[in-house]
C-alpha cells in the first residue's frame, strides 16, 4: 500500500486527533435524545463526525492521488507565534510600551531581511503612534508602563 496523498493523510489524522481531544473534554456531559438534547448532544455528534470525516480523508489518501506535504516553516513561524505569546504574557505586568517593544524584538527574528536600525526606528514610531492613538486620543484603559 502506498500513500498517494500525504497531505490528506496528515489532514485526516489531525481531524481524528481533534475528535479524540473533543471526546476527552465532553466527559460526563449529558447527551440526551434528539428531541430532548442535553449539553453533550451536539459536541458528541460533531466530534463523531469530525473523526469520521478524518477517517474517510485518511483512507481516501491511500486511493486517490493528491498533493504532497509542504514543509512547515518554523524559521518564521516560531518567532511570529512567540511574539504574540510574549505580548499576551507581558501586556498586563509591563504595559503597552514594553510589551509592544518585546513583540517587535521577537518578531524581528521572523523577518525575511533584518535591518536592525530600520526595525528600531519603525518600532519606536509605531509604538508612539499606538500610545498616541489609543491612550492619549481615545482614552482607553491600557496600562502604558509597568505598575510600580
Amino acid at each position: 500500500m502506498r500513500v498517494r496523498s500525504p497531505q490528506d493523510l496528515v489532514g485526516g489524522i489531525a481531524l481524528i486527533a481533534l475528535a479524540a481531544l473533543a471526546f476527552s473534554q465532553i466527559g460526563d456531559l449529558r447527551i440526551g435524545t434528539a428531541s430532548r438534547m442535553g449539553p453533550g448532544y451536539f459536541p458528541t455528534v460533531l466530534a463523531g463526525l469530525t473523526g469520521l470525516v478524518g477517517l474517510v480523508l485518511a483512507v481516501r489518501s491511500l486511493v486517490l492521488d493528491g498533493h504532497g506535504l509542504e514543509s512547515l516553516n518554523l524559521r518564521h513561524g516560531l518567532p511570529l507565534l512567540g511574539a504574540i505569546l510574549v505580548f499576551g504574557l507581558t501586556i498586563r505586568p509591563l504595559g503597552l510600551v514594553l510589551a509592544s517593544a518585546l513583540l517587535f524584538l521577537v518578531s524581528a527574528f521572523a523577518s525575511p531581511e533584518l535591518k536592525w536600525r530600520e526595525t528600531l526606528v519603525a518600532s519606536v514610531v509605531l509604538i508612539g503612534l499606538a500610545v498616541l492613538l489609543f491612550v492619549v486620543l481615545l482614552d482607553l484603559p491600557f496600562p502604558v508602563w509597568p505598575r510600580m
Partner: peptide
C-alpha cells in the same frame, strides 16, 4: 510587525 502589534 505593525499588523501583528495592532492585532494584539
Amino acid at each position: 510587525p505593525a499588523i501583528l502589534m495592532f492585532c494584539c
